[in-house]
């Protein structure tokens, strides 16, 4: 890039400069808004405009996280929730992908199961809370089950519609070469649905967090969802806010990993 810069026109240099300025502006506004919110929050509580007991404050959140750390329970709670979320995410994605493949494979099975999937998709999974407690007890298995349940149907529906949307003419082309169903699957359907797979992962990152936190609300004795419920019950809103903040960071980190994966996988998928 640097070598190119030497040979390019004044106009192009100006264009690059403008672009850089715009980027700097966008980033400084982003950071500025965050600083403004945090500053006003802190200021309003320290000056007594708002009750820090009810709305907490950035410094109290930082202190809460610090004390969780010194108590030695910070990474225990983070780890518990993270593990439940990640394992649930992987199971939901893998199982959903597999089931979507099976449904793509057989039109009859697909037609038979369609109403069941539609109903399961529409059902609010939290309604199954009591059943889950009775079936799986009050530990991690129950939360995992909830996480998988929330993500699975979305994964199936997302991938199935991508598989079915495979270009009819490309299918015809492969068939004219004499391709069987397995070859059609491995050479066309799976690679051409890669962008949909990535977007499904992005959606399911959110789903996995919904599932794990919802699960922890219902049954858990550890994890960030547990801290939020516990903090609410004993009116420790600092704890609620601190856990919510940690959730934001973790969810953003997981989403970022998927975006990285996308950059590695979808280099040449534009048609």
């Amino acid at each position: 890039m640097k070598n190119e810069k030497k040979n390019c026109s004044e106009e192009h240099l100006l264009f690059l400069k403008k672009r850089r300025r715009k980027l700097i502006l966008i980033w400084s506004l982003r950071v500025g808004i965050l600083a403004l919110i945090l500053g006003l929050w802190e200021l309003s509580t320290s000056l007594g405009w708002a009750d820090a007991f009810l709305v907490s404050s950035p410094s109290r959140i930082a202190r809460t996280i610090g004390s969780l750390y010194t108590e030695g329970t910070l990474f225990y709670h983070i780890g518990t929730t993270l593990w439940e979320t990640l394992v649930g995410f992987v199971i939901a994605v893998a199982l959903g992908y597999g089931i979507a493949l099976a449904l793509w494979w057989s039109e009859t099975v697909r037609k038979v199961l369609e109403p069941y999937i539609v109903v399961l998709n529409a059902l609010p999974k939290i309604a199954l809370g009591p059943l889950i407690i009775i079936w799986f007890g009050t530990g991690s298995p129950a939360i995992l089950f909830m996480t998988v349940l929330v993500g699975l149907i979305v994964a199936i529906m997302h991938m199935l519609s991508a598989f079915i949307a495979t270009d009819k003419n490309k299918l015809l082309l492969l068939k004219s070469m004499g391709a069987g169903k397995v070859q059609i699957l491995t050479k066309l359907v799976i690679p051409s649905s890669l962008p949909s797979f990535i977007s499904m992962l992005k959606v399911n990152v959110g789903m996995a967090w919904i599932g794990s936190i919802m699960g922890e609300y219902i049954v858990s004795r550890a994890g960030l969802g547990y801290l939020i419920v516990y903090g609410g019950q004993v009116f420790k809103l600092d704890l609620v806010m601190a856990s919510t903040f940690l959730l934001c960071v973790l969810a953003a980190g997981m989403y970022f990993l998927v975006v990285l994966l996308e950059k590695v996988l979808v280099k040449n998928a534009e048609s």
Binding site: D167, N169, K170, L172, L173, S176, M177, K187, L188, P191, S192, L194, N268, A269, E270, S271
Partner: peptide, 14 residues
């Protein structure tokens, strides 16, 4: 044996 060529090239972009 046959070779089939369609309206569009249908090259696989990946």
């Amino acid at each position: 044996s046959f070779g089939y060529m369609l309206q569009k090239d249908h090259l696989f972009p990946w």
